[in-house]
Design a binder for these strands. Structure first.
Length: 937
RNA sequence: GCCCCGGUGGUGGAACUGGUAGACACGCAGGACUUAAAAUCCUGUGGCUUCACGGCUGUGCGGGUUCAAGUCCCGCCCGGGGUACCA
């Protein structure tokens, strides 16, 4: 039988489906292994050749682990909420669920053609109410928990109110927004002037329901708050920090503004330290871990209070360099700082307000674009150094951010480049306090040197000085050591339609959670997918968007990362109607052993889901602190565009090699019209009406195209679709070729030309099992030593390479193996059956077909990975490379077990050695057994 | 600016712990089979040099360590990604 990929692949894909070959259940007798792909957003364009790269790798790994005796959980689903379907709905009125369903079906069809071993019975879709019920359920738990810093974990709010009832909040140490009580004083609940957020049991009992709820809101892990948010007018919604880049939305690239809005937040900052610590225990790339570390941005320093001249107020600043306190020559407040109004003398007030207003009106993008532009204003007020009472002026400047630390700094121009630039610009004094730099040139920021001009810390090195100042500050009660994080709480509200509804209603303006038995709260239908005339989110259009009792429901929806934060847990028990997932399931599957996906999720999904998991861990649901033990980021597949060269002002195209002789412009041409860089000129003329009369200047009778490696995109005509390749070469060839392209983690250009080599290999492989007339034929003769050596060499290499996901070299290994067996004309069952098991993870359809032809009734997925036997690889001789002064000159075959002294002798006596020795006596001879001989002259 | 990752033939890449650089493919050139084409098979293929045997040279650049460096160390250059007033 001739190799026919179409027939074979259809047959086995159907077989796997009919026999539920990849259905997985809990099996205590087998060790578990959980292999997960980042589930895709099903876009309308379908999969291109870059998408399946990671899926193929994870599929090979899953199949390999099954052969190795593991019970493998390998599910797939869809991150089904997303902006494109909603934008399409706005334009066309088509419900996003319909668009999404259509796209999901297309994705499924494409994935099925590649022959993946997913357990489709476990499929989850984030937009499915049966799934998002648990997203809502988790949100309710987040709302009903607070973070206890003493025990370092989330605890129920019910326990918090008990504490308040019995002893107030003085002893409670909770993760909260700094100065949370300031915000409260702005609301319609009053706690009296100068209230510092501290209350005793009797106060608590006396608070109104509203007051109590407002206070509790500041403790909850999911909370409602007024805050500066990233507002994207074009998308009509708020975005999280990771959804914004350089002042534009990551999706759609629309401008983003800052706006004060009331939004739901997740208190992810409570987990900042644990998110940092957890990175130590996972096997992720350094670059990914660094990205997360940087995003979390821990910095250790001190908070110090500076008295303000002529005022009762003390200015609270944060610094990582308390050692430089005597070099602080001015103070800077962020333009949003609450003290500005309080400390600015009347004669300066107008000027300062003008500046603050100016800054506030500037958009985020303008601010970013003008980073280098120094601006600020002097308030007219002065601070006193808490140690020596020396006054320094207080400025307001936008280079100090309200959201970080205390929103105020002590400026040390000699040792901070930003302060330095600012001081130079406004001609403020610069005092050197750490020796080692030249402050007339630039600031000296290094934490290296001896303190000078610094009173009690003079002569200490920087580290000792930092400790000394913190100790003193503590003693004097004017501050304390402190850790700050860059990480911000996650904005969790979106003013969009296509997302999970919040299980929240409002009574008297206070939010309340629905009961668990009212979940899921399903997404209502609306007459249009746009905000209302009054600017409310689309859900405000829904009829009867109220509870049974008539209270209005929340009209925001959850963001994209809500549904993806816990999906890996739901896969463990996806059909469970009464629980997120059962204890039994999570105890068995634990966490993801191998997670493969793109690194664009470094600071989004991968932080949120670690947080989500840690919370579920705290409340006793998840059993592991880290959800993803090993994580691999597959590289992107870049497009390889084909280029043609058009003579200026004509319809004549010049071939690549001759283009420099003419004045030309470069034009992208559809890659489907090009084969091995040779343009099909006939097809080219047919491609577009304006090219019908194109003429060509050829070289050697052909038109050679140039090429460029760039993003795979429709507009560059370089998109390659897997369906066509699979139709032509088959899924097995396609799978192998995707892996053969290069290392999984590396980005690389797609070049369809190379696929021929793999296709040739597949047919060569097929021929090993067939005679000249293409009849299946295996011999039952005993295998020779040479054949066994080839087989076991291959077993060893495939096993090692697959374990470390070096799948490109694994494919090469198969090629070498088949070349060698082909040379020996090997057709022995004893060799070829094992080879089928080896390749079955990579080319599963081919393997199944030949396995069946071998006479097996069961799927090859039931086979056991062949055991490697070292004994077959033992060689009697070793071919030593012989070097003189490190340069390899000739090789010499010697007995493998020959002792070094004898090797030395044999090499020196060799005929070829005389030429290189030139009669000299070697100074030294290095013999490394079974490696090399090096003679030093 | 800072932090990661990378730089090897015409191309994709291999060389895992320092030990024969360029495996395996693509492409190209030549040949076999064929009326012809496709398919298949064989040979060659880093550069320079030599009729040839062979020699010299070669992993972004400059130094270093070592018997031995693509691999380790120091200093640069280039490309890709992340991040950006975070005190």
């Amino acid at each position: 039988m001739e190799y026919n990929s179409q027939e074979i692949e259809k047959k086995w894909q159907k077989y796997w489906l009919d026999h539920k070959t990849f259905h997985t259940g809990i099996d205590p007798a087998k060790p578990k292994f959980y292999v997960l792909d980042m589930f895709p957003y099903p876009s309308g364009a379908g999969l291109h050749v870059g998408h399946p790269l990671g899926y193929i790798a994870s599929d090979i790994f899953s199949r390999f682990k099954r052969l190795k005796g593991f019970n493998v959980l390998h599910p797939m689903g869809y991150d089904a909420y997303g902006l494109p379907a909603e934008q399409y709905a706005i334009q066309t009125g088509t419900h996003p669920a319909i668009t999404t369903e259509k796209n999901v079906a297309r994705y499924r069809e494409q994935m099925d053609k590649i022959g993946f071993s997913y357990d489709w019975d476990r499929e989850v879709k984030t937009c499915d109410p049966k799934y998002y019920k648990w997203t809502q359920w988790t949100f309710i738990r987040l709302y009903n928990h607070w973070y206890d810093l003493k025990s370092g974990k989330a605890r129920p709010v019910a326990e918090l109110t008990e504490i308040f009832n019995s002893s107030g909040n003085a002893d409670v140490r909770a993760a909260m927004t700094p100065n949370w009580f300031h915000e409260l004083s702005k609301k319609d609940v009053s706690f009296g002037a100068g209230w510092k957020g501290i209350f005793i049991a009797s106060d608590w009992a006396g608070f109104s329901e509203k007051q109590q709820q407002e206070i509790l809101m500041n403790y909850r892990l999911a909370y409602l708050s007024e805050a500066m948010v990233n507002w994207c007018p074009e998308l009509g919604t708020v975005l999280a920090n990771d959804e914004v880049a350089n002042g534009y939305s990551v999706r759609g690239n629309h401008p983003v503004e800052r706006k004060m809005m009331r939004q739901w937040f997740l208190r992810i900052t409570a987990y900042a330290q644990r998110l940092l610590d957890g990175l130590e225990s996972v096997e992720w790339s350094d670059s990914l871990k660094d990205q997360q570390k940087y995003w979390i941005g821990r910095s250790q320093g001190a908070e110090i209070h500076f008295p303000i001249q002529g005022s009762e107020l003390k200015l609270n600043i944060f610094t990582t360099r308390p050692d430089t306190i005597f070099g602080s020559t001015f103070m800077v407040l962020s333009p949003e700082h609450e003290y500005i109004e309080k400390i600015t003398p009347a004669d300066q007030l107008e000027n300062v307000r003008k500046y603050v207003k100016e800054v506030a009106n500037r958009s985020e993008r303008e601010r970013m674009a003008e980073v280098k532009k120094i601006s600020g204003v002097f308030t007219g007020a002065y601070c006193l150094n808490p140690f020596n009472g020396k006054p320094s002026p207080i400025w307001v400047a936008d280079y100090v951010l309200a959201g970080y630390g205390t929103g105020a700094i002590m400026a040390v121009p000699a040792h901070d480049s930003r302060d330095y630039d600012f001081a130079k610009h406004f001609k403020l004094p610069i005092t050197e306090v750490v020796s080692g730099g030249d402050i007339s040139e630039s600031s000296y920021d290094a934490k290296d040197g001896i303190m000078i001009n610094s009173e009690f810390i003079n002569g200490l090195n920087v580290k000792a000085a930092i400790r000394a100042v913190i100790t003193k500050v503590n003693e004097m009660g004017i501050g304390k050591g402190m850790v700050n994080f860059r990480l911000r709480d996650a904005i969790f509200s979106r003013q969009r339609y296509w997302g999970e509804p919040f299980p929240v209603y409002f009574k008297d303006g206070i939010p309340y959670m629905l009961n668990d038995n009212e979940l899921p709260l399903e997404l209502p239908s609306v007459d249009a997918y746009l905000p209302t005339e009054t600017g409310e989110p689309p859900l405000a259009r829904a009829k009867n968007w109220i509870t049974k009792e008539g209270y209005p429901l929340e009209t925001n929806t959850m963001p994209g990362f809500a549904g993806s934060s816990g999906y890996y847990l739901r896969y463990m028990d996806p059909l469970n109607p009464t629980e997120y997932f059962s204890k039994e399931a999570v105890n068995y599957w634990q966490n993801v052993d191998l997670y493969i996906g793109g690194d664009e999720h470094a600071t989004g999904h991968l932080i949120y889901s670690r947080f989500w998991n840690k919370f579920l861990f705290d409340i006793g649901l998840a059993v592991r602190e880290e959800p993803f033990q090993k994580l691999v980021n597959q590289g992107k597949i870049q497009g390889r565009s084909s280029l043609v060269y058009r003579l200026k002002g004509s319809n004549t195209f010049v071939s690549f090699g001759l283009k420099d002789q003419y004045e030309h412009s470069v034009m992208h041409v559809d890659v489907s019209l090009v084969n091995n860089d040779i343009l099909d000129t006939q097809e080219f003329r047919r491609w577009r009406p304006d090219l019908a009369d194109a003429t060509f200047i050829l070289e050697d009778g052909t038109y050679v195209c140039g090429y460029a490696v760039e993003k795979m995109s429709k507009s560059l005509y370089n998109v390659v679709n897997p369906d066509e390749l699979i139709e032509h070469y088959g899924a097995d060839t396609f799978r192998l070729y995707e892996m053969f392209l290069g290392p999984l983690e590396q980005s690389k250009p797609w070049d369809t030309n190379g696929i021929e080599g793999v296709f040739r290999f597949i047919r060569k492989f097929w021929r090993l099992y067939h005679d000249e007339e293409n009849r299946f034929r295996l011999s039952d003769e005993a295998a020779t030593a040479a054949e066994l050596r080839i087989l076991h060499k291959t077993i060893k290499k495939i096993q090692e390479d697959t374990e470390r996901l070096s799948l490109n070299t694994a494919v090469s290994t198969f090629m070498i193996c088949v070349n060698e067996l082909g040379e020996l004309k090997c057709s022995k069952r004893a060799i070829l059956e094992d080879l089928l098991i080896l390749i079955s993870s990579f080319a599963p359809h081919l393997a199944e077909e030949l396995w069946q032809a071998c006479g097996h009734n069961e799927s090859i997925t039931q086979a056991i990975f062949p055991a490697f036997n070292e004994a077959y690889l033992v060689e009697n001789t070793f071919k030593y490379p012989v070097s003189f002064n490190g340069k390899m000159r000739f090789t010499m075959e010697l007995p493998a077990d020959m002792p070094s002294a004898e090797i030395e002798k044999a090499v020196l006596e060799a005929e070829e050695s005389a030429k290189w020795l030139e009669g000299k006596t070697p100074k030294k001879i290095i013999v490394v057994n079974r490696k090399i001989v090096n003679i030093v002259l």
